[in-house]
Every structure is written in C-alpha cells, then in structure tokens.
Design a protein around this nucleic acid. Structure first.
Length: 489
RNA sequence: GGCGCGAUAGCAAAGCGGUUAUGCACCGGAUUGCAAAUCCGAUUAGCCCAGUUCGACUCUGGGUCGCGCCUCCA
C-alpha cells in the first residue's frame, strides 16, 4: 500500500483516494518571467516521478500543473524589456517546455494558465465575500480576512499569534490586519491595459494565491487528492489556498499535501534573490539531461539536494554503470521502447528530449511479483523512496554483469523506465555527442583501426600511444572479445 | 523571536531495535599483452551526553551544530 508523507498531518499516511482507482493531483508550477532553474527542475522531475508511479500503480491519474502568467514580477520584467506580458510569458513558456522535454517530463494532463481562469477567480472571490471572508480595502483591493477563517495555519503549523509576533510581516496599507492577503488587486493608472480585467470591484488583476484555488477546483473539483509544490510554498501560498478554497466551498480542499525539498548550492537554498541559481539550460550544456534527472531522483524528494559539479559527476558515473550493464545485453532488450504513455500532444514531439516511455503502465509490463520488482515497489510505496528503488537497479545491474541474464537486463530497463530513466540506446548514452573541438565517430574509428593493426603487429607501444592519445581527448577504449569499443569519459 | 527539518563511512545517500543498503573513490585478487569494463574480496559509519533495553545508528530526553519558513520564491 502506498504511503505518502502528508504535510498536513506531519506524518506518513496510507494513501486512500477519494474515488477508488482515481487520483486527482495539482502541482504549483512556474511563474514564467525567466528561465527555469534547477530548483524548478526538481519540482518537475519529482512530481513527474510521482505521476509515473501512481500510473504504474494502476491509478487513473489526472495531473494538473499550472502556469502563472500574470503577476508583479512578470509585469515588472515585461516593462523592463519593453515587451508585452503576453510576448514575455509566451517566450518563457516555450523555454519551460523545452527544459521539461529535455528532462523527460511527461506533460501534465492539464496545464492551465492564470489568465485563462479570471472568471472562475472572480466567482470565487464573490463567494468569499458572500461568506464574509473577503472585504474591500480602502485602497480598492479585495482582501481575505484571515482571522475569520478558523483553520488558518493548519498546514504550516503556524498560529496567528506567532505570525503576529514576527516582526517581518509587512504592514500594508488598506489591510484590516497585516496577515490578510490580496485576492484582487485594483488597477493602477500606470499599468498596461493587458493586465486589467473587469470585476465587480472595479478593474484589476488577481492576487497570486487565488489562481491555484480557482483552477484546482475548476479542473479537479472542490475536493481532490494530492496537492504538491516546493517546500517554500507551504506558507503562505498553500495555507492561503486552503483558506480560499475551504472558505468559499465550505468543504475539505485537499487530502494529501506534498512538498519537495530545496536544491542548495554550498549549503544554501538556490534562489533568485540570492543569485546562486543555475538555469536548467546552463546545466544541460555541461551535463546530460538524464544525468540531471538521475541526480535529482537519487535523493529522497523531501531531502535537500546539494548541487555541485562533483555530485553531478558522481551521478554520471553511477548512471554509466547502469547503461554499461544494459549495453552488454542483446539489442532488442535495450533499444525497444514505446510511447504509449504519451498523450496526444503534438507540441511535445517537436522538442528533443529523453524518451518518455516505459513507466510500467504502458511500456514493457512489469511483473510485480518478481523479487526485485517487489523490492522496488516496496521502496516506491514508502513515500516514493527513489534512493532505495535505485539500489534495486544497481543490484540488477550486478546480476546482468555476472550472469549476462537478458531477463535481468529487461527488468533493469523496465524498472528504470518507471523512473523515466534508462530508455535510451546504451551506446548513444555512453558515447554521447561530440562537442565542439572533439573527435567525431569517424575519426575515432580510424584511430581504433590503426590501433588494431598495431596490436596485430604486436606493436604494443604504438597501440598504447593511440589509446593514450584518445584518452586525452576524453575517449576511453575497451578491448572486448568482440572487438574494441569506445565511450566518452 | 516563533515554527519546522536535518546530522550515517573519503564523498553522496537509504533501510533497519540484533543479520552486506546502494553508487562513486580507495586497497587486494581474478581477467587483460598492458589497460578499460566486469567479477570476487577487504577497509572505512552513524554529532555529543544521558535514559529505556539482553541488545540502539535505529526508541526517549537534553545539548551542539547546520538548514528552512515566518517577505516574492519551486
């Protein structure tokens, strides 16, 4: 039975869906005013893994991940760039999709944008007003009266008293209470028309928190199973979502709240404000996308994850071991794949990226009674323990190397596929693509030929010279009973 | 200040009240012309102090250190 750590309960709980065999899941996505960094990559990969595991477990999953395409930072950035917010957000949504595809992220079933759901937000704010939870402030904003909602603080474990004691709460004009937050921001004269919507409370635009409440309930219903996001969204964003949704609908909002840990750099949270972030595309220039995905899934999703070249190199070495094992087995085991998991989404096909197949739900079938699959499942069912699940992969690799078992290799590839890994042709992974200034395949093979001749002539000095020369350009040669093969170091 | 999370071998990272995690690195052996890859084996753990227990890395209490949230943040 699947257990999930529920932030709301501060404990692992048995996962019991609202409707049998069905999971409705919402994850807070990106605010699209810049390129995604590694922290965003972690959210994408982690919840992609969750999505895949739920599907592999036989659930009919509806996965929603929103896009915030209207907010202060977007407006500011668009103004700086002298472009419309629409042009800005379109650009970065495109970039985000490229990053996702590179990392082998399955497209969510719905990817709603805030600007498409303004009517639903207005309806919800109206309901909150009717329920006595929202009020119009002196400055024209519609605010949420936090103290009128009983359960406020239940997710983050904060009490209103504690929050008040904190010195860092802004005293914002117009609010009845410093803790209140904005539902609807009144339009300002200096703002472009494209950021103004009509509302019963005058022209304006939505506050940040209301979009997730409105889109979640519109697509998944007033009460759904899982809501996820980065740990920094726990408060105030998710706390406010609960206040809005439960305050408007008068029913329970979400059963299981999941929060992933941060990516850190030198033991500090990676964030825009600290300026210590690496964009996904930056990292992908140096490291294979699958190595990055592997690196992320190698730690438990709730732990913090330290980013460094040393750790990425370590991940690369580990993933190389798995592919090396697959390489040694017959091609039909290691190269076949299907794309049955992929919903019809023509957008996706145009991006280069990792194969999306093999999650166990639609690709190669997994026999969950088989011992290693059983161990893998036990690990994954324990709050998505991917490090433990990966240990099973390495044990299978050892078995493949030891016994040359095609069955073990198939199992390795299939279970790897559940995590969105190991679906490429092993040789393609091991040899990679030639970067600028590096030898291409033709040149490498010519060198190998020359070395084979030297070896035949027992000219080992020459053979070793060639091998050393190739090694210096990052090419490792391996002499096997079937001939000499190569890979990139 | 309030609330929360963490501390495991050289590095990374899990489970587990008693029996090999796993990967990388390192050492020995097999294999190889020599390597590489692979296999076999060895070594290296559980922040500190108490307590519970026949037995604690694992449970309880206290401490120390690190990190996060309380402000936009994945």
């Amino acid at each position: 039975m699947l257990k999930i750590y529920n932030t709301l309960a501060r404990d692992k709980q048995d996962f019991i869906p609202i409707e049998p065999n069905t999971v409705r899941m919402y994850v807070c996505g990106m605010t699209v005013y810049d390129y995604c960094h590694l922290g965003h990559a972690r959210v994408m990969v982690v919840f992609d893994m969750v999505y895949r595991w739920l599907k592999a477990s036989g659930y009919d999953v509806t996965y929603v991940r929103n896009i915030t395409d209207i907010d202060d930072k977007i407006i500011k950035r668009a103004a700086e760039n002298g472009e419309s917010i629409h042009a800005l957000t379109r650009r970065f949504i495109g970039a985000m999709h490229e990053d996702e595809r590179a990392l082998g992220i399955l497209p969510p079933d719905h990817e709603p944008r805030a600007t498409q759901y303004v009517p639903q937000m207005l309806a919800m704010i109206g309901q909150l007003e009717k329920n006595g939870l929202a009020y119009r402030a002196t400055d024209g904003d519609m605010n949420y009266a936090v103290r009128k909602f009983d359960g406020y603080g239940k997710l983050s474990g904060k009490s209103l008293g504690d929050l008040r004691a904190g010195e860092r709460v802004n005293v914002n004009d117009g609010k009845n209470d410093p803790l209140d937050f904005v539902l609807w921001k009144h339009a300002r004269d200096d703002e472009a028309e494209e950021v103004k919507w009509n509302s019963p409370w005058g022209k304006g635009r939505p506050g940040w928190h209301i979009e997730c409440s409105a889109m979640g309930s519109e697509i998944l219903g007033k009460h759904f199973d899982i809501h996820g996001g980065g740990a920094d969204l726990q408060f105030p964003h998710h706390e406010n979502e609960i206040a809005q949704s439960e305050g408007a609908h008068q029913c329970s909002f979400v059963n299981y709240w999941m929060h992933n840990g941060f990516v850190r750099v030198d033991e500090e949270k990676m964030s825009k404000s600290l300026g210590n972030f690496f964009t996904i595309r930056e990292v992908l220039k140096k490291y294979d996308a699958e190595v990055v995905r592997f690196f992320i899934l190698r730690a438990h999703y709730r732990s913090s994850l330290n980013y460094s070249d040393a750790h990425l190199n370590d991940a690369k070495g580990a993933l190389t071991r798995l592919y090396t094992a697959l390489k040694s087995i017959t091609p039909d085991v290691t190269t076949s794949h299907s794309t049955s998991l992929l919903k019809d989404n023509s957008l996706v096909a145009s991006y280069p990226g990792l194969p999306l197949s093999g999650d166990g739900a639609g690709g190669a079938a997994v026999d969950w009674n088989e011992p290693s699959a059983q161990r893998f499942k036990t690990a994954m069912d324990d709050d998505f323990n991917t490090p433990e699940a990966m240990a099973v992969l390495f044990e299978l690799a050892n078995e493949v190397n030891r016994s040359q078992s095609a069955e073990a290799a198939r199992q390795l590839k299939t279970l790897g596929g559940v995590l969105g890994l190991l679906q490429r042709d092993p040789q393609a992974f091991l040899q990679g693509d030639a970067n600028e200034g590096e030898l291409d395949d033709v040149a490498i093979n010519a060198q190998i030929e020359a070395r084979v001749s030297a070896k035949k002539a027992k000219n080992f000095a020459e053979a070793d010279r060639i091998r050393k020369e190739l090694l210096e350009t990052g090419i490792v040669l391996e002499d096997t009973p079937h001939g000499t093969i190569w890979r990139r170091a």
